[in-house]
Design a protein around this nucleic acid. Structure first.
Length: 495
RNA sequence: GCAUCGAUGGUCUAGUGGCAUGACUUAGGCCUUCCAAGCCUAUAGCCCGGGUUCAAUUCCCGGUCGAUGCACCA
């Protein structure tokens, strides 16, 4: 029998559907005690890594509710919408613009609802499934509308992406942070999309968490400010558009991607950084990681370069998008300049420009799920081997048995460590069962107080990864704990 | 949103028109000097609404949720 990640996630307190006792709504998930800690630690690792790329990158926060005008300017009110027509006979809904385009070979994207209705009549469009007649076209916008104020007269929406918060705040932060480029603004927060058919667990949700870094920069000088030497001799795992169907991915030298494939140096530099994050911090096996190039047709029109970051997840049946690296150009700030009539132009050493945006966009829920998927290594017994910095609990402390001599010592160790780490104390059940519990929630180190140790001031410490044990002096506990937690000391280096 | 299938303690399941099965888990106890041992006890369940029936977890209708395919995913 193999461990089902979904039921482990539920049973051990990671994640499950929201409002369970009322039958749930599709696309909404809640985090339990373990899941919330795992998510927080993923976010912390992510922040530490990506904020560390530049001194001028900052964490900010912004509202989930945005005024209609802002989302009108960003294009979401109009383009986050699909015109639908429904068959009056079989009830099947179709994308009106696509159907018209297929039938007439004419672009229909710009047609209004009334124009669509007229066009449907004109060309005698009928339901491709049952030949039934179509009703009037209507729009379906993926944004959740909100009525603000007692009369609900201020129209607003739940934000469909966190990015807009950074764009709306750009001018003020540019001023506060002393007018330097590149300026990085990070937001970790909720975004909302009224998906037509949420599927595959946390992979497509209606309320999701995004971690996004928006880098505002001058495309002509940004590359010069990066340490491009880091790219020398480094390969990126990529699947380019023309490789599709032939292979999953191929290691391509950074230099090739710049010189031959024509990607901007700053873009490839960030590919490398993202790859290092996944391979070194998240510990994704190299064979399960790739950048997946989006074709001109697949990417949003304002993205000049777009690769998805994909990881091979067995629970989701293959390579799945966990993040995206988008070179959005000056599209966003230009749009908000038009919409708000506030100038988004900046002046740097005599050069005036509207900064361009390089967006690093991560789906947090998917990434947290990926941790469970990737690190549940023993499917039979359910051993989760999480990196110490990501595990919900870094340490667990047990008395070998529920005996009066052992309990106070174990309690004391627990409280010594608790100030600095997330530590679990457990004295219930056999020692083997307690180790197994910790295996399932990914606690990397278990400290056990036994009778031998009472005499000579030692405890045993067990490594989840290898299930091996070593005996350490209680006096060394703090320094060893610090080393193991940071990853600077490896378990095998003990003694 | 359409189609097919499904939904039983916390988890995984058996089964049924009339006291709902088992395992694991969890809690308490006994035992136990290191990897889910054993014994005793306890807690806990038929997705929601309506219908048929003396009686519905079971049959019927509608909904919700899930899996899969199609569609959708700027």
């Amino acid at each position: 029998m193999s461990i089902d990640v979904q039921s482990l996630a539920k049973r051990r307190g990671f994640i499950w559907q929201s409002a369970e006792i009322y039958g749930s709504m599709a696309g909404f998930y809640d985090y339990g005690a373990m899941g919330a800690m795992l998510k927080r630690k993923w976010e912390n690792s992510w922040l530490k890594y990506f904020m560390g790329l530049n001194d001028n990158y900052y964490l900010i926060d912004s509202t989930n509710i945005l005024p209609e005008a802002a989302l009108k300017a960003s294009g979401h009110v109009d383009s986050f919408t699909d015109p639908l027509i429904e068959c009056t006979k079989c009830g099947h809904a179709f994308r009106a613009d696509q159907l018209i385009e297929e039938t007439t070979n004419q672009a229909a994207e710009e047609l209004s609802l009334a124009e669509i209705d007229a066009k449907v009549l004109e060309i005698g469009l009928a339901c491709p499934r049952c030949k039934g007649p179509f009703g009037n076209a209507r729009t379906f916008n993926m944004m959740f509308p909100i009525d603000v104020g007692t009369k609900g007269t201020d129209k607003a929406y739940l934000r469909p992406e966190t990015a807009q918060g950074a764009y709306l705040n750009f001018k003020r932060h540019f001023e506060i942070m002393r007018r330097k480029l590149p300026l990085g603004l990070t937001i970790i927060g909720k975004a909302y999309r009224n998906e037509i058919a949420p599927r595959q667990g946390v992979y497509r949700m209606r309320e999701l968490i995004q971690a996004e870094l928006q880098i505002f920069m001058d495309p002509d000088t940004f590359s010069d400010e990066l340490d491009l030497k880091e790219m020398d001799g480094q390969d990126i795992q990529v699947q380019l558009v023309d490789m599709r169907g032939k292979q999953h991915m191929q290691p391509m030298p950074c230099r090739y991607l710049v010189d031959q494939y024509g990607l901007p140096e700053f873009y490839v530099y960030h590919m490398l950084k993202i790859q290092q994050f996944y391979l070194d911090v998240i510990k994704v096996p190299k064979s399960k990681f790739r950048f997946y190039e989006k074709s001109a047709k697949e990417r949003a029109f304002y993205n000049r370069v777009h690769f998805d970051i994909e990881v091979d997840l067995s629970t989701l049946g293959g390579f799945k998008e966990l993040a995206g690296l988008h070179y959005r150009g000056d599209y966003d700030l230009t749009k908000h300049q038009l919409g708000s009539k506030e100038s988004m132009e900046v002046s740097i050493e005599g050069r005036r420009l509207i900064p361009h945006v390089l967006e690093l966009s991560f789906g947090v829920d998917r990434n947290v799920w990926a941790l469970l998927d990737l690190h549940l290594v023993d499917e039979r017994t359910g051993v989760l081997k999480l990196p110490p910095a990501l595990a919900p609990y870094t340490f667990a402390v047990f008395p070998l048995m529920k005996k009066d001599e052992l309990i106070p010592v174990a309690r004391n160790i627990h409280s010594r460590l608790r100030d600095d780490y997330d530590v679990c104390y457990d004295q219930s059940g056999s020692i083997g069962k307690r180790y197994a519990r910790m295996d399932e929630i990914g606690t990397p180190f278990c400290i056990t107080v036994d009778f031998d140790g009472l005499a000579d001031g030692t405890v045993t410490i067990r490594d989840t990864d290898s299930a091996e044990q070593k005996r350490i002096k209680l006096d060394d506990l703090e320094i060893i704990a610090r080393g193991l937690h940071s990853g600077k000391l490896l378990f095998k280096e003990l003694n």
